[in-house]
Design a protein around this nucleic acid. Structure first.
Lengths: 342, 342
DNA sequence: CTGAAAGCGCTAACAG
DNA sequence: CTGTTAGCGCTTTCAG
């Protein structure tokens, strides 16, 4: 079932319809103007031949392929951790794909095109969505140099804010969650933070430090790699609850961390909520937070909506629509659950 | 940040390296032969200019773009149900993307290219993965006609088995689950089936009917659309448990259906397991089955592995590698859980 | 080993 | 309204 090129070309259609290739081109692209009758003949001929314009050839001229690249960080293709963030990521990717389709684009998952082993096609995308750029993201450097449109979902923490990044509003979110923990009765709030160098982590840290200091306390933060997951959270929890004066509330950066902290608290015989309140700054739809016992208060970052907005902005950029108004901070919703609510 | 074409072309590199475009082409593609020294000069010039071969132009000649299309059925882009199968689908899509990358391909989610409103780029893919083809799938018709390689993940139920389809082994799986329900004490097993016309549903029905009749009983099957989800399952459960002689075991086709049936049983005061056993023929990782109370016995279809196999086979086809041995039925594992185990 | 020439399939100017 | 003429950036014979 190999088969050489069987598809009809624009010339075949032109010949059959008794017109020039240009006319066929016009008829299909809707550019120029074609007499209705002629257009019909062209369409008819094309149908008979099973002709469809070749996207690649078209892209060569118009330097627009119709493909958006989605780059997910962290990005090591070896690292199956890629699959760990499934809940949030799938919703994001799925929604982005749909939104892209609605704008006439395909959405391709690509590994970091700056890596040597990246498939060449990665570079062919008309624009890129980069979720959670890392500090001084090399991909952003490259895209900027080559004038390829992109949109960061989250800031590059080392670069100035700009319309090139969607603002996740991390500090505001984290502060809200911390306030909620305090309202729920937490008087000493610890934090379990991640280690990736992205907006989400770096801003969360900043926000936590500021919040704690504003209350005249010393920060009590531990860090665990995102990929350490529930086990990492459990470790962190054991560390925190083993202290001489343990926290009575814990803010966690990921749902998996939170689930681990919860497990550690329960293992230690601590009531949740009661002795300890736990909340998570992300990923409210994850199994870990939603279906744990008790369920863990967390934040719905609206990945479906976020992806849609991101695609809209990116497509506008790709199509050269002038500065689509940079949307404000992403919407979110605090999902208060049993882990902080008597 | 619009910017016209800034990227260096092969000519620029040729000029700078003092050679012809042909030589540059050879140096990069590894085709012809280039003297080591010349190749170095070319590479050097390219580096200085930040040159990278243009994938689109390259694809024009070689008619190989390096992109695999992933078509998910059912496929209505309007229908957010697309997002509902998240657990299984994400794992599948994520894993497929990784496997594709490892073979040097990009993996693009595309809507059914046979639809009128589909983005043209859908057609540009070098090959397609079609998860759960529907009966007489029009996409398969088109791809066959145009000699575009594809691989169905699941058979087209209306076409003869062939190496073009990965065998999901549905009948075997369903039979195993039914056997398990019987072993767990079920003497009258009902089925809640789906409505999509794909291998999964049609073969499940066949297998169920055969299994029941082999035991000298009459089938007791209800159907609910996949998208009806938990509510649909609940309805189905109410219907079944409201019968004069209700079943004492229910096979469900989807995790959501199973969760609904479970809810219906509990609402009716039936013990699960005890009065009723429930098992699900798919999607063991879904929240619905894994984290319900009790958790629901289901089947791990190994989507991560399945996707990897599918990509391997498809890439072999795309690259014209002769008949990579069609892999046998997909592996799976019955995950026995509380819903069938005292 | 290297290069000149001829396109891949399509579209973008311009002319008619 | 339609056709002619040039290519897009790259690869590919096929001569040197």
């Amino acid at each position: 079932m190999a088969g050489k090129r069987t598809r009809a070309t624009i010339k075949d259609v032109a010949r059959r319809a008794g017109v020039s290739p240009t006319t066929v081109s016009h008829a299909f692209s809707g550019n120029g103007t074609v007499a209705p009758g002629t257009a019909d003949r062209v369409r008819e001929a094309a149908r008979e031949l099973g002709y469809r314009p070749d996207t690649v050839a078209r892209g060569l001229r118009s330097s627009r392929l119709g493909v958006l690249g989605l780059v997910v960080r962290p990005l090591d293709p070896q690292d199956t951790a890629f699959l760990e963030g499934v809940d949030y990521f799938l919703r994001f990717a799925g929604s982005a794909a749909l939104a892209a389709v609605e704008r006439g684009y395909g959405l391709m998952l690509v590994p970091d095109p700056t890596r040597a082993d990246a498939p060449a096609v990665g570079l062919a995308c008309d624009g890129f969505l980069i979720t959670e750029p890392v500090e001084n993201d090399p991909l952003i450097t490259m895209l900027t140099r080559e004038c390829v449109p992109f949109l960061g979902v989250g800031r590059d923490p080392a670069r100035p804010a700009s319309p090139d990044y969607l603002d996740l509003g991390t500090r505001r979110i984290v502060t809200d969650v911390l306030d909620h923990l305090a309202e729920a009765g937490g008087s000493r709030v610890a934090a379990v933070l991640g280690t990736d160098r992205n907006e989400w982590n770096l801003d969360a840290e900043t926000a936590y430090l500021a919040w704690v200091r504003a209350r005249g306390q010393e920060p009590l933060a531990v860090r665990r790699a995102e990929v350490a997951g529930e086990a990492g959270g459990r470790e962190a929890g054991e560390e925190l609850f083993g202290l001489a004066s343990p926290p009575d509330a814990v803010y966690c950066q990921t749902g998996r961390h939170a689930a681990g902290v919860l497990a550690a608290a329960r293992a230690k015989g601590l009531a949740v909520p009661g002795d300890v309140r736990i909340a998570c700054g992300s990923d409210s739809d994850s199994e870990q937070t939603r279906l744990s016992v008790p369920p863990i208060t967390s934040v719905d970052l609206r990945p479906v909506r976020l992806a849609r907005v991101a695609v809209e902005v990116l497509v506008d950029r790709v199509e050269g629509i002038e500065q689509s108004p940079a949307p404000g901070p992403a919407e979110y919703e605090l999902m208060v659950r049993g882990s902080t609510r008597g």
